[in-house]
Design a protein around this nucleic acid. Structure first.
Length: 683
DNA sequence: GTAGGGTTAG
C-alpha cells in the first residue's frame, strides 16, 4: 500500500507498511504547511526519517504556530545538520522566542553564513538593533544576503542614514540591494530619493525585477509623479508583469493618488481579481477621491466575487461610512466584521471608534474600544478625542490615566485631545495640570495647537490676561486659529479692547478671515456700537467676504436631508412646519420667550439666520421627529455653531418630546435630554 | 530535495 504525503513542494511516497513495522508511534498529527500540503510528525524514539524530512516537518510546525512541537521533534532527532539548526533557529525567532534562538545558536556545532544572517534578520525584525549590529560585526564571513538583511533591518527600525551608509559600504550590490534601498527610502518618507536611486540603478545597468517595479510604482504614488508612473506602467505591461498583484495593487493606488480614478478602474478591470489587496486598493482609491458611495459598492462587490475583506478593507469601508456619516451602513459593516472574527482587531476597532464618535454615538464608540484586544496609541487617542468632541472631559482624563497605567506612551495627539476635552468641559484646573504635565514631558514636542487649546481653556474661563501672557511668552509665532480662540473668548467675556488686538493680529496674517470679521462685528453689536458694525460689514462687502450660510442636515435611510434657514424646498415642508408650530405652542405653554438679541443683532457666531423660528437646526429636528421611530435618539448635524436661542429651545424640545436629541455643530456634540444639554451651556 | 536578503492595499 502506498500513501502519498506531500511535504512542501515535494511529494513523498512512503510505504506505510514499511514504516509501521519500524515506527511504533507513526503519524500523530498532520499539520498543514503554507502550501496546504501535509507534513507528518514522527516522534518515535527508535526510528526517524531522514534529516531532510524531519527538517521540513519542523518548518511545517513553525508555519502552523506549533513551535513547541517543532522543538520537541528537534530535540528527539538523533542526527541534525546545519540546515536543521538554522530552520529551528528561524522558527524560534519567528515565534518571538529570542532566548531559545540564542541558546541554539550558541550550542550548534557548526555555523554557516545562513545561521548568522538568520539571527541578524530575526533580531532586526524584533527591533533588537544593538544585538543585531554586534552579531553582524562579529560574522566571520558576510555574503551579499547578509549585507542586504542589515540594510533592510536598518530601514524597518527607522535608521535611514545607517542603511544608506551600509549600502555604499557593501562590496557588491545586486538588484535585491537596490530594491531594498528603494522600498526602504520610500517607506521612510523619502520617496523622491527612492526614485532618484531607481534612476541611478538603471544607469548602473542593473535590471529591475517585478519587486523593484512594485516599490517604484508605490514611490510614484507617494510623490504623485504621474509621468514616471505612467512610463513604468507601460514597461511592466511590456514585461508581462501586469497580472502580478504586487504590480496591480500599487498601480491602482498610484492612479488614485494622482486623482485619475478612470485609470484605476481600467487597471482593475483588465482581469478578474481574487486578491483582497487589489480589491482594497480600488476601494481605498475611491475613498481617496471622495467617491465614498463607489467605495462602499466595491466593498459589497468583494463578497459577490467571493473575496473576503480583511482588516484593511474594513478600515477603508468604515472610513467611507464616516465621511458619508452613514451610521446605519457602518453598523452593518460592523456586523460583517464580527462575523469574520475581526471584532477585536485594532485597525477595524479604531475605524469603528472614529465612525461612532463622529456620528454622535459615543457609547457605541466606548463599547468598541473595550473589545479591542491589543489597543494601540491610535485606539486611545481616538477614544480620548471622541470624548473631547462630546464634552466628556472626565472620561477623557480617566482614559488618560488608564493608558498611563497600561504603559502606553501618550503622543502630541493625546495631549491635543485632552486639552480640547478640558476646554469643552470647562475644566480650567485640569487643563492647567495637563498643560504643565506636557511642558515637562520630554517625549512629546509641544506644538502650536497645544498652546491654542490652552489659550481657549483660559479664555473661556475668563482668564484673558493669563491667556495673553501665554501668547506673549510662547516659543513660536501664533497662528489665526490661536488668535481666533482668544477672539472667541473676548466675545464670551465682552472684552472689546482685547478683541480688537486679536482681530488685528489675525488680519495681519489673513486679511480675509471671515470668522474674525463676524466675531468682531458681533462684539460691536453687543456693545451697541452700530457704526462699527456697519463699518465691518462694509469692509466685508468691499472685500467680497461671504459668510457661510447655516446648514443643518439629517441622515435618514441612507439619504442626507439638508435644510437652510427658512427652507421650504423639502418634500415634507408642510409636515415640518406643522410640527414647528406644534412645538411653538408647547414652548409657549412652558413660558418660553425668544431671546430677540439673537435675531436682531446678528449675534450668532458666524451667521445671521433670518428668523429664530426657522433656524435650520429646528427644521432638521422637526424632520427627524416626524421620520424617526418614536422614542429613539435623533441626530442632527450643523455646519456652524448652534445659536444661543436654538440651544435653549432644543433643551425644551427634548423635554417636550421626551427624547434625546444629539446635535453636532462646528464646535462639538450637544446631547440634549430632559431639558438639559451635555455641554452645560458652555460651548 | 530543506535554512538567510528586496515587493502590494490600510
Amino acid at each position: 500500500m502506498i500513501r502519498k504525503f506531500k511535504v512542501s513542494q515535494t511529494s513523498f511516497h512512503i510505504s506505510c507498511t514499511f514504516l509501521h513495522k519500524k515506527v511504533s508511534h507513526f503519524v500523530q498529527h498532520h499539520p498543514k504547511n503554507q502550501k496546504g500540503n501535509e507534513a507528518v510528525v514522527f516522534s518515535n524514539k527508535c526510528f526517524y526519517p531522514d534529516v531532510y524530512t524531519c527538517t521540513k516537518t519542523i518548518q511545517s510546525y513553525v508555519r502552523n504556530n506549533r513551535a513547541d512541537d517543532a522543538l520537541k521533534l528537534f530535540d528527539e532527532m538523533p542526527v541534525r545538520d546545519v540546515v536543521t539548526w538554522n530552520t529551528m533557529i528561524k522558527g524560534c525567532l519567528d515565534c518571538g522566542n529570542v532566548e531559545v534562538a540564542f541558546k541554539l545558536f550558541d550550542e550548534m556545532p557548526e555555523r554557516n553564513v545562513v545561521s548568522w544572517t538568520t539571527m541578524v534578520s530575526g533580531l532586526l525584525m524584533r527591533g533588537m538593533m544593538d544585538v543585531a549590529e554586534c552579531l553582524f560585526m562579529e560574522m566571520p564571513m558576510k555574503d551579499e544576503a547578509a549585507w542586504n538583511s542589515m540594510i533592510h533591518g536598518y530601514f524597518i527600525n527607522g535608521k535611514v542614514e545607517e542603511a544608506v551608509r551600509l549600502f555604499h559600504k557593501m562590496p557588491s550590490r545586486s538588484v535585491i540591494s537596490w530594491t531594498s534601498m528603494i522600498s526602504g527610502l520610500d517607506q521612510t518618507g523619502k520617496s523622491d530619493e527612492a526614485l532618484f536611486l531607481f534612476k541611478h540603478m538603471l544607469l548602473c545597468g542593473v535590471r529591475p525585477t517585478s519587486m523593484t517595479f512594485s516599490s517604484v510604482i508605490t514611490a510614484c504614488a507617494n510623490v504623485k509623479n504621474l509621468h514616471l508612473g505612467r512610463e513604468i506602467h507601460g514597461h511592466v505591461v511590456k514585461l508581462g508583469y501586469f497580472s502580478d498583484t504586487y504590480i496591480t495593487a500599487p498601480l491602482i493606488t498610484f492612479y488614485a493618488h494622482c486623482k485619475d480614478i478612470d485609470s484605476c478602474c481600467k487597471v482593475f478591470n483588465e482581469k478578474a481579481h481574487d486578491s483582497v489587496v487589489v480589491w482594497t486598493s480600488l476601494l481605498s482609491g475611491y475613498g481617496l477621491n471622495c467617491k465614498h458611495e463607489h467605495a462602499l459598492e466595491v466593498f459589497s462587490d468583494m463578497f459577490k466575487a467571493n473575496v473576503l475583506p480583511n482588516q484593511s478593507s474594513f478600515t477603508s469601508a468604515l472610513n467611507s461610512c464616516c465621511e458619508l456619516e452613514a451610521l446605519d451602513r457602518g453598523k452593518e459593516i460592523n456586523g460583517a466584521a464580527v462575523k469574520l472574527g475581526l471584532e477585536a482587531d485594532v485597525f477595524v476597532g479604531n475605524s469603528l471608534i472614529v465612525l461612532y464618535t463622529t456620528c454622535g454615538n459615543i457609547n457605541d464608540g466606548l463599547s468598541v474600544f473595550k473589545v479591542i484586544a491589543e489597543k494601540n496609541i491610535v485606539s486611545w487617542n481616538s477614544m480620548i478625542v471622541g470624548c473631547a468632541q462630546h464634552g466628556y472631559g472626565t472620561w477623557a482624563l480617566i482614559l488618560f490615566n488608564q493608558m498611563i497605567r497600561y504603559e502606553v506612551s501618550p503622543d502630541d495627539i493625546t495631549f491635543t485631545g485632552l486639552l480640547s476635552a478640558c476646554s469643552r468641559s470647562g475644566m480650567l484646573n485640569k487643563g492647567r495640570h495637563i498643560f504643565n504635565f506636557l511642558l515637562n514631558y520630554k517625549s512629546v514636542k509641544v506644538k502650536l495647537e497645544h498652546y491654542a487649546c490652552m489659550v481657549d481653556i483660559l479664555g473661556r474661563n475668563g482668564r484673558l490676561n493669563e491667556a495673553v501672557e501665554l501668547v506673549k511668552n510662547m516659543p513660536m509665532e501664533p497662528n489665526t486659529s490661536l488668535w481666533l480662540a482668544l477672539l472667541s473668548a473676548c466675545k464670551v467675556h465682552s472684552n472689546l479692547k482685547l478683541a480688537e488686538t486679536a482681530a488685528e493680529a489675525i488680519f495681519n496674517i489673513d486679511p480675509n478671515c471671515s470668522a474674525a470679521y463676524t466675531l468682531l462685528s458681533n462684539l460691536y453689536a453687543f456693545a451697541g456700537r452700530w457704526n462699527d458694525v456697519s463699518r465691518i460689514r462694509g469692509v466685508m462687502k468691499n472685500k467680497g467676504i461671504m459668510k457661510e450660510p447655516g446648514l443643518s442636515w439629517v441622515n435618514f435611510k441612507g439619504s442626507r436631508h439638508e435644510f437652510l434657514s427658512g427652507d421650504r424646498s423639502h418634500p415634507m415642508t408642510t409636515e415640518i412646519y406643522e410640527k414647528l408650530e406644534w412645538i411653538r405652542e408647547k414652548l409657549k405653554g412652558l413660558g418660553y420667550v425668544p431671546d430677540q438679541m439673537f435675531a436682531l443683532h446678528d449675534v450668532e457666531d458666524e451667521q445671521k439666520e433670518t428668523s429664530l423660528l426657522y433656524h435650520s437646526e429646528r427644521l432638521a429636528i422637526c424632520f427627524a421627529l416626524i421620520c424617526s421611530v418614536e422614542g429613539s435618539t435623533i441626530t442632527v448635524m450643523k455646519n456652524l455653531r448652534v445659536c444661543g436661542d436654538c440651544h435653549s429651545v432644543i433643551k425644551l424640545i427634548a423635554k417636550i418630546v421626551e427624547r434625546e436629541i444629539v446635535v453636532r455643530d462646528s464646535s462639538r456634540f450637544h446631547h440634549f435630554k430632559d431639558g438639559f444639554c451635555s455641554c452645560c451651556d458652555y460651548w
